[in-house]
């Protein structure tokens, strides 16, 4: 279920929406009273593109459109802050090594990435952080006609941005494991059902509303449907563990929906 084009000169586009919202206030990993009604809502729509030079080398680009709001405590009072607009774009260079076996295909990937400060930092709840960040991820995926597994370990070095925003570095682990219960060869139509495990560690940082960072683990289901060169994906990430630095609004349950096409 490697949904990027593997063929030389292939390219693809995906629109993906990511939504999360929470009014749960955490101190460390404990829920605490939230009399001032602190909350956060983030709605991000990503436009993602990929171009395959040869199967071992691809470039990926993605840019988000962000609509977000939060209630923060400023000088002892609850204040609603909003932000919207283009966020920080990410450019990646995917290097892959494929292993094709008779009844399976697998690949190892290494992706250095660069995050540009294309997002504005002027809103009360800024959609960008004003910094140039670098990242790298290492992945492995293995697929048969029935089983699929994917592992990705990533690291982002977040440098100091504008308006005092200085997010900590981030380490992530994503695991997707699942099956394809149905595939129709005639129409190249089918779907996958998978489980997702995501773990994140974000170093202690600051943004315009206070402390950022912590660690969290989420679990959830993934549905991927496809028909020829079209792909539809839904996934939900339920937080099963979260610990924040200081006191912050929880990350919340995350909903993702994406529609992709390759040529």
């Amino acid at each position: 279920m490697d949904m990027a084009p593997r063929w030389d000169g292939g390219w693809g586009l995906q629109v993906r929406n990511e939504f999360r919202s929470s009014n749960k206030l955490l101190s460390g990993d404990s829920k605490r009273a939230n009399p001032q009604g602190r909350k956060r809502r983030v709605n991000t729509t990503w436009l993602e593109g990929v171009y395959t030079f040869v199967r071992e080398v691809r470039v990926t680009a993605k840019i988000p459109w962000v609509e977000q709001s939060r209630v923060s405590v400023v000088s002892g009072s609850a204040v609603k802050q909003t932000g919207s607009g283009l966020g920080d774009a990410i450019l990646g260079l995917q290097l892959k090594h494929y292993i094709n076996r008779e009844a399976s295909t697998a690949n190892f990937g290494l992706t250095p990435s660069l995050r540009f400060p294309t997002g504005s930092t002027s809103d009360a709840y800024p959609v960008g952080d004003g910094s140039w960040d670098v990242g790298v991820s290492a992945s492995f995926s293995h697929e048969t006609t029935f089983l699929y597994q994917f592992y990705d370990l990533s690291y982002w070095h977040n440098s100091k941005g504008k308006r005092g925003i200085d997010r900590g570095d981030e380490v992530g682990l994503d695991v997707n494991v699942g099956v394809r219960p149905y595939h129709d060869n005639r129409h190249n139509l089918g779907f996958f059902l998978m489980a997702d495990l995501s773990a994140r560690y974000e170093g202690h940082g600051e943004d315009t509303a206070g402390t950022t960072g912590g660690k969290r683990v989420s679990l959830g289901p993934i549905f991927v449907g496809y028909w020829n060169n079209l792909m539809l994906r839904f996934d939900v990430k339920f937080p099963v563990y979260q610990r924040v630095w200081g006191s912050q609004v929880a990350h919340g349950t995350e909903f993702n929906a994406g529609l992709g096409v390759v040529f």
């Binding site: 084009p5 295909t105 595939h183 390759v262």
Partner: peptide, 18 residues
């Protein structure tokens, strides 16, 4: 043609296209 690695839908689309 028997093809190694031909196990996925996008494989099928890519081969068909090629």
């Amino acid at each position: 043609v028997q093809v190694n690695g031909m196990v996925c839908s996008f494989c099928a689309y890519g081969a068909d296209k090629a």
